[in-house]
């Protein structure tokens, strides 16, 4: 594996050069809320110890709302005008492994058979500079979903702090190699063995459950009353889905702008909303919150795995940190694991 070294100072110059080369730099904001674009390399604040922001960077590749085309109802017919695909070159700087993986996971659903170019264009225009993660709290569970704080899966480049003012950077993908090429003068040659030693010293979150056990338990215990416990306290908001780095469900709605023209929008939607599956006839296939909560867990740990061979979860813990009623997905998975172990 190719590895380079860079000082903090040169990293700032790197950021400056990227801004000059018309890249949009996107980082965790200082308030811990969301990812933000920076316009100045002085704002480059990255650290392996940062807590994950409340919202992931999903919004930049899968917008919370975006026009998919415009329409103009004219006397002699309807005119449809394509929505411009964004050409913005984005760099997600210092992404935790649990965020870095998200684009690859969502890419599966946006590309089986039909291709969603709104997502694809942004994904192709994105460079993910991942970073080793040293943040831990009781909501983190990346190691239970085949990731880890040192995983470069999903990153194009991967930063490893070697001391306060120095980083090693691994070139993970071809895309990453091409991207870094014009800036190589800022980097020195590194030695992968040194960083392997760093990785070994990283304290990994304890593995709380086996995702494969969860998958098979759900398959065999769909009607289990266990889901009622979360279902009866879940208030049915979309916080969990919207802060999730990989939840990708959406709605399509028309908006009028003036009398005869308007646009069709693609908006985030969530399976926890009671209206999500409601038929025009009034029939609702998932008519209570227990069923809707079960759908969330099942989609993440079973359906998506069966269909796309990926767990629809990166273990970032955002949904649990932010849940208004404290529903903790990691804890639920752990409990399901023990239910499975006790064969209840």
């Amino acid at each position: 594996m190719d590895e380079k070294l860079i000082t903090l100072n040169n990293l700032k110059i790197f950021a400056e050069e990227l801004l000059k080369a018309n890249y949009t730099l996107i980082l965790q904001d200082k308030q811990g809320i969301r990812w933000e674009k920076i316009s100045n390399s002085d704002e480059l604040h990255i650290s392996s110890k940062l807590k994950p922001t409340k919202a992931s960077f999903k919004e930049f590749v899968f917008s919370k709302t975006e026009p998919i085309f415009y329409f103009n109802n004219k006397n002699d017919g309807v005119e449809l005008i394509d929505s411009n695909l964004s050409a913005e070159k984005m760099v997600f700087f210092g992404s935790k492994p649990c965020d870095a993986k998200s684009i690859n996971i969502m890419s599966k659903v946006f590309n089986w058979d039909y291709k969603d170019n709104f997502f694809n264009t942004k994904a192709e225009n994105s460079i993910v500079i991942g970073m080793l993660c040293e943040y831990r709290d009781e909501f983190c569970f990346c190691t239970s979903v085949n990731l880890s704080p040192v995983s470069s899966d999903g990153s194009d480049l991967f930063l490893i702090p070697t001391d306060e003012n120095n980083f090693a950077i691994r070139i993970v993908t071809e895309k990453g190699r091409e991207f870094i090429q014009p800036f190589l003068k800022l980097f020195a040659e590194g030695n992968p063995e040194t960083t392997d030693q760093i990785f070994k010293k990283i304290n990994l979150p304890e593995k709380g459950f086996e995702s494969e056990v969860i998958r098979s338990w759900i398959g065999n215990n769909f009607e289990h009353k266990y889901f009622e416990r979360a279902g009866e306290i879940c208030l049915g908001c979309g916080q969990c889905a919207f802060v999730c780095p990989v939840c990708h469900c959406f709605d399509i709605v028309d908006e009028e702008c003036g009398y005869s023209c308007g646009r069709r929008m693609k908006n985030w939607d969530a399976c926890q909303f009671s209206l999500f599956t409601l038929h025009g006839s009034g029939h609702n296939p998932r008519h209570n919150q227990t069923q809707r909560y079960r759908q969330r867990i099942s989609h993440k740990f079973k359906y998506y795995v069966d269909k796309f061979d990926e767990i629809l979860c990166t273990g970032c813990g955002r949904c649990s940190r932010g849940c208004p009623v404290g529903i903790d997905i990691g804890q639920i998975a752990k409990e399901v694991h023990s239910l499975a172990a006790n064969k209840v």
Binding site: V109, Y114, F250, F276
Partner: peptide, 12 residues
């Protein structure tokens, strides 16, 4: 079932 995209994307 209620659908929106018809393309296996929107999840509904």
């Amino acid at each position: 079932n209620r659908m929106k995209c018809g393309l296996g994307k929107c999840g509904r």
